[in-house]
Write a protein that binds this DNA or RNA. Structure first.
Lengths: 360, 360
DNA sequence: GTGCCAAATGATATCGGTCCCATATAAGGA
DNA sequence: TCCTTATATGGGACCGATATCATTTGGCAC
């Protein structure tokens, strides 16, 4: 084995300290255009600041090199990442996807990028995901309610960044909140069915036991039961069956179980349109007529509910608009350097009457 | 008392050059723990490298300060952002959401974060979004096929980052591809219906005209028509109706239009289960019996297809597995420093026979 | 021509981490 | 005992942008 050379004088060569990247940097652009880096930066962020002739030289250099600025570096320096964090239970749900969609739309114009994380309804994952998000230094955080574990809350406070809770309006918002009350959804549904004169009223939802819990759905059930209780009606028709998240299949199975347990049931509220649609389909298979034999209503106003026969009566919340509105609020909020007082906006609900609840 | 080493020397004055952030940095942790920044960095990235006693001091300081490392800074320095970019037409589609879901799952373990962008089927947006993504310096890019505009391709080449095209297998992959052939889907569907002896065969899809185009759906139609042509059957029952993206409502409207134009049609292939389900619902309303009067098959194997009556015959592609597989491949690919040859994986299709196609 | 101010551009420090290498100490072998 | 090697830690440069302030240039009134 030969010893390394002892020579002291090293040739002045492009020091390969770190592997040289192929990608052009702002420095390459500035050299090619014959201006300083700062001028390049200005051209790209606010062209008006630079003389047209200079500007054009820079644009040309950018195009020739195929330069794409590195936002990672820019973020570090400017202390603005342009990220908005969004934490959801899942993306595999049309309503949450709609929220993400609306948010993206609103943020796009202001050049913010959504950073999405989801927990699959797993509370342990929630904290891990939140930490990951915070490590990216988002300029605001959007949460779907019910994330109220100790650590998570502490981390949010420490992050010192606007927090918006959406969808479920929490009783004690961390800061801003935009959404509706799932508890009210439940009460509204029960009230609606009571008003139509039903006496044997049931509901189907997922069981809150198990690894995975749908807090929002459980809130709806709580409101539903409460309204029944206030009306002095039995609540034994409120069935918690299977595990979250609910699905068409869940609805079908839960419907069958409920009808078998309570053959006299007249009307059913399903925690989600997914379950409600599944229930309607199962009813068809059981040769039960909807709504003549049993009335069914759901929640969420999913597209499929409009198309099935009979069309599904449901409670509507405009999730796309919710996302859009949240996005607009964030853009305004981040544009002003004042810190506005915490606000809570209730976007309300709307019963959509279709054909799956009997009209007497 | 000797002078402390420079690292730990107390700052002369909190120089207010830039607004001082409240958030603790690695320097604060190192001071509190009485070690160098580098040691803190090691503890957080590979604790084994550090003595347990030192390690614990650092962990304590981290906990006391509520320190969350800044990945923006880390990324810049290490030249590894931990981002994987994903570009989709939309998230408001169960299959694409499933892809994102599977991808996230696979990437989570390796500590990559998905950076999602979607185009709403808008080709102009595609390029803008791609530029935004590239500015974040993702370590790999996952695309759903059909992004073959000049500029976009050029930008991808220049990015010098692994590219994986998923879902639709392109005829000329940019680099890696994992998915299936939408053209084959169409041919398979037509073959299936032909084999069952149908002679008047139709199809429903969205019109490729208009601002928004569903290339993947159009590929399916192309294959479908081709197979009919090879079998010397008329293709005039292939109806392109309405605009992309398709929906339950689209299927209902298209079905009605098709049946009115061709009352003798025996079997229909819908470009998506969404359309197929809508068609089945519309058939119910028109008092047409499925499959006795008309057979219907779809594509995508959406959950709702399993639940409707009759259950929908369809072509299944496991999108969640597709995402999972893509994620695993990326993790492997990024772990090795070799550059493996471009690969194309066809995950294939599966006809799921249920009750909406007549069995003779 | 001189002086003043605004507009255009440049020089340099810095954001908060990690890379690379140097150094100190401990452990093992001749 | 001395040298070699491994382990634990520290020092300083650097990643690629932007913030801040300094400097240069040009226009215009006197």
């Amino acid at each position: 084995m030969s010893r390394p050379p002892r020579e002291t004088a090293a040739p002045a060569e492009p020091k390969p300290g770190r592997r040289a990247s192929q990608r052009p940097t702002i420095r390459d652009v500035s050299r090619l255009a014959g201006v300083s880096r700062m001028t390049v930066s200005r051209v790209l962020s606010d062209p008006e600041l630079v003389l047209p002739t200079t500007r054009d030289k820079v644009f040309k250099a950018v195009a020739d090199l195929g330069y794409v600025p590195d936002k990672t570096a820019g973020s570090l320096s400017s202390r603005r990442t342009g990220f908005i964090a969004l934490m959801l239970p899942t993306l595999t749900n049309a309503n949450f996807a709609a929220v993400a969609h609306g948010l993206t739309e609103a943020l796009r114009e202001a050049d913010y990028h959504l950073l999405i994380a989801y927990t699959d309804y797993d509370m342990a994952e929630e904290e891990r995901q939140l930490r990951n998000l915070l490590a990216r230094r988002p300029e605001a955080i959007v949460l779907t309610g019910a994330m109220h574990r100790r650590n998570a809350s502490r981390m949010l406070m420490a992050a010192d960044v606007p927090v918006v809770e959406i969808a479920d309006l929490p009783s004690q918002p961390i800061e801003h909140a935009i959404g509706f009350s799932n508890y009210q959804v439940g009460r509204t549904a029960a009230r609606y069915l009571l008003d139509r004169g039903f006496t044997r009223i049931g509901a189907i939802a997922a069981s809150p036991e198990g690894e995975v819990t749908d807090h929002r759905g459980e809130e709806r059930m709580r409101g539903f039961e409460e309204e029944l209780r206030l009306a002095r009606r039995p609540t034994d028709g409120v069935l918690r069956h299977g595990t979250a998240p609910v699905s068409f299949h869940h609805g079908a199975a839960a419907f069958r179980a409920l009808v078998e347990q309570h053959p006299d049931i007249e009307a059913i509220f399903a925690v989600s349109d997914l379950s409600a649609v599944g229930a309607v389909m199962e009813a068809q298979r059981m040769n039960l007529r909807i709504p003549q034999d049993i009335s069914i209503m759901g929640f969420g106003d999913f597209e499929i509910g409009r198309e099935i026969n009979p069309a599904l009566t449901t409670i509507h919340v405009d999730f796309h608009a919710l996302g859009l509105r949240t996005g607009k609020m964030l853009v305004d909020l981040l544009a002003s350097d004042a810190t506005p007082a915490p606000s809570t906006v209730d976007v309300g609900l709307r019963i959509v009457e279709r054909a799956s609840v009997r009209d007497r």
